[in-house]
Design a protein around this nucleic acid. Sequence first.
DNA 1: AATATGGCACAAA
DNA 2: CTTTGTGCCATAT
Length: 117
Amino acid sequence: MKKKVIDRRLVYELLKQVPKGRVTTYGALARAVGHPDSARAIGALMRSNPYAPAVPCHRVVYSDGRLGGYGGMKGAGRKARMLAKEGVKVKNGRIVDFEKHYFEISPQTLSSSPQSV
DNA sequence: AATATGGCACAAA
DNA sequence: CTTTGTGCCATAT
């Protein structure tokens, strides 16, 4: 039993590893950090985004390929614009070729020791 | 410490 | 395909 605390640092690091013009989902990100069920938690971390703008939280979208939210689901339009500017085409709130722009994050263990049990 | 909020995911209809 | 409802978790105040 380990602590069920998502490593903020790890989340940001993983997110930072997402190249420009590429997008990922909270779920995938959550998995990358070792919390496959904490997709929402990831959003929670992004919400405060203490590492902003070092962390491109705007590159994180829904698993459905939609944009998701941004500032209370109000600045989603802005997010779309940013992504479009980076090369991710967004059409009517939906990412074009989402899976094509989708970037699967590698579960890097960062500086922590994996110590698999 | 507890409540409210929130930038999600998945299933079913 | 769209919409509704539920479950999960962490943050901020």
